[in-house]
Design a protein around this nucleic acid. Structure first.
Length: 210
DNA sequence: GGGGGGATTCGG
DNA sequence: CGAATCCCCCCG
């Protein structure tokens, strides 16, 4: 039968767990240009944000281990999903060794596969570069919810992290993290938002020339 | 048990 | 710029 029949051809190879066993900022840089996929939908990671657990006032794990943040204390490669503003889910890749909380928020994807399914899930007809241009938007587009929290992104599950051979940028754009309130203090100033330079899907991207 | 705030998004 | 809209977590 044709090679295209049945499951789609793999978008890439599984990422090694060792590659994610580093500090959040190190792992954040490594995640750029990898592929996040759920079923047929897929996108390339173009914007991420590091959250360093116990030593980071902006991290959900800053005040210790709770039911919500349990996945952040797990082994690198787990998916941490949180629910916010009463309606949005956001997805993180867990890093650091088991027992130490750390995670990288996926903030934007460049859509790669099944854009129409993504648009249908989002309930709007947007240009490709806007479908996954935000942490909650990409979760909605890929169908990621709280139910997926804690799964292993490096196993053959619903949500997977793949390497299709595109290396991370040598010099990613570095900015302060988005959306942090003043209450997190000096953590607000850290340039822990990393992105592929000049990508249209990144937060604050110019959508017009000039 | 109460209440303030949230790693957001969309529309006005 | 403010509403939507639920959950979490700190405090009493």
């Amino acid at each position: 039968m044709p090679a295209s029949e049945g499951t789609a051809r793999p978008l890439g190879v599984t990422v090694s767990r060792e590659r994610l066993d580093g500090t959040p900022i190190e792992v954040a840089a490594q995640l750029l240009n990898l592929v996040l996929t759920t079923g047929e939908t897929a996108g390339r990671i173009v914007e991420v944000e590091a959250y360093a657990g116990a030593e980071d006032q902006a991290s959900h794990a800053f005040r210790g281990r709770t039911a919500r943040t349990e996945a952040m204390f797990g082994p690198p490669g787990l998916l941490y999903v949180y629910f916010t503003y009463g309606m949005h889910y956001c997805a993180n890749v867990v890093c650091w060794p088991e027992g130490v909380a750390g995670a990288v928020l996926i903030r934007a994807l460049e859509p790669l596969a099944d854009l129409d399914v993504m648009r249908e899930r989002r309930g709007r007809d947007e240009p490709a570069y806007r479908i996954c241009s935000g942490p909650a938007k990409l979760c909605q587009a890929l169908g990621i919810t709280r139910l997926d929290g804690g799964i292993d992104l490096l196993a053959d599950g619903k949500v997977r992290l793949l390497d299709d051979g595109v290396p991370p940028p040598e010099k990613p754009e570095k900015r302060p993290r988005i959306g942090l309130s003043a209450r997190v203090g000096s953590a607000r100033a850290l340039a822990w938002n990393l992105s592929v330079k000049d990508h249209l899907s990144v937060t604050g991207a110019k959508t017009r020339t000039g």
